[in-house]
Write a protein that binds this DNA or RNA. Structure first.
Lengths: 191, 191
DNA sequence: AATTACCCTTAATCTATATTAAGCCTATTT
DNA sequence: AAATAGGCTTAATATAGATTAAGGGTAATT
């Protein structure tokens, strides 16, 4: 649990009261491979901290294909903000790729922290700003680079994920088919 | 100027002190068509509120083509958060599409507000959360829908922008060429 | 240990979208 | 008022990446 507190040391460290307030509101859960913590149609109830393991968040198109929006591994936060905030059914799935351990805080408890300890407003503002920056860069790349280039920059940016994820999942993240990724990998290897 | 204050009524309304603190730190500027308020290579210094007019934020790829990340019109905020926060050269341009009037707050003043009036942490947290949601939906669409479908959903989502923007700009936002957008529009018309 | 599910690759064919090029029209700028 | 730069369209050709299909490998589940 202390790991979740330490996370904030990167931003504005918490004092003892704030630590206590946060810790007492986090619930630990163990999640199996392929288990969902959010399914399309359900309303998202939690902000989730990943202690151990790895998750993917994705949407499904009309023909049933999955499209990965992001991966979240150790010591990072994940939620469907749209569904959590607007309290409407999610369009997304969040699914464990590995056996995982998470800490969850409910929307109500999070709102309690926001109201009573302003530092959480600050810290979660900065967290989401960082995630916004990531998304913005990803969208720009999607428009301005080839699949080959996007794969190379994925390898650079997430070297630790490369060996943990099947290529099918990476392909879905890059917005291409596994077959085409295979072609790209073959090209890279022969050079 | 009052318009920028009113914006926050949608979220957490400001009291008189907070209003005053905000207003005294906003600078009004008039911007001509095609004038930049941010250019690639420069470090972004301001968070900008658009009172009148319209802007595009875009990046340029290796072959010189523009890729629109977003448009911002009346009563909305725009900045390159990446460059503003990390104080590094921006990869983006922000350019007026129409003659515009804006209010700007510098990074230093914004930090002052964050530190002394926690409500700004809260309000800007919510603003950026809303923008994150928009971006996330846009990325999902880019992966899971055809250009035809993306154009239709653009028309639905931004009906007021449709008539103000040249189709070249809309094409760049959709991630396609103007020629292909023309084809799509022709298809739509004949049905 | 066997079975099943999933993963990875190769190759042929197909398609959505890009590129190039040309012509016309409508705003801006001079 | 003329000149220029952009914007819109059509059509021919080109291409990045999708789809379909098939075979072999490896890890998860029974």
């Amino acid at each position: 649990m202390e790991r979740a507190v330490k996370y904030f040391d990167k931003y504005l460290p918490l004092d003892d009261h704030e630590k206590q307030a946060l810790l007492s509101r986090l619930t630990e859960r163990k999640i199996k491979r392929k288990q969902y913590i959010l399914q399309e149609g359900d309303t998202c109830k939690y902000f989730t901290y990943v202690v151990e393991g790895c998750f993917k968040m994705y949407g499904i198109d009309h023909s049933g294909s999955e499209h990965n929006l992001l991966f979240t591994a150790e010591d990072d936060w994940i939620t469907d903000i749209d569904s959590l905030h607007k309290e409407r059914p999610s369009k997304l799935f969040i699914e464990a790729i590995e056996p995982s351990v998470i800490l969850q805080i409910s929307k109500g408890d999070l709102w309690y922290l926001y109201t009573n300890y302003p530092k959480f407003d600050r810290n979660f503002r900065v967290i989401i700003e960082d995630k916004y920056i990531e998304l913005q860069n990803r969208l720009l790349q999607t428009f301005s680079k080839t699949a080959y280039e996007r794969y190379e920059s994925f390898l650079e940016q997430y070297p630790r994920l490369t060996n943990r994820l099947p290529n099918t999942q990476i392909a879905s993240y890059l917005g291409i088919t596994p077959e085409f990724l295979s072609k790209i990998r073959n090209e890279r290897a022969t050079k």
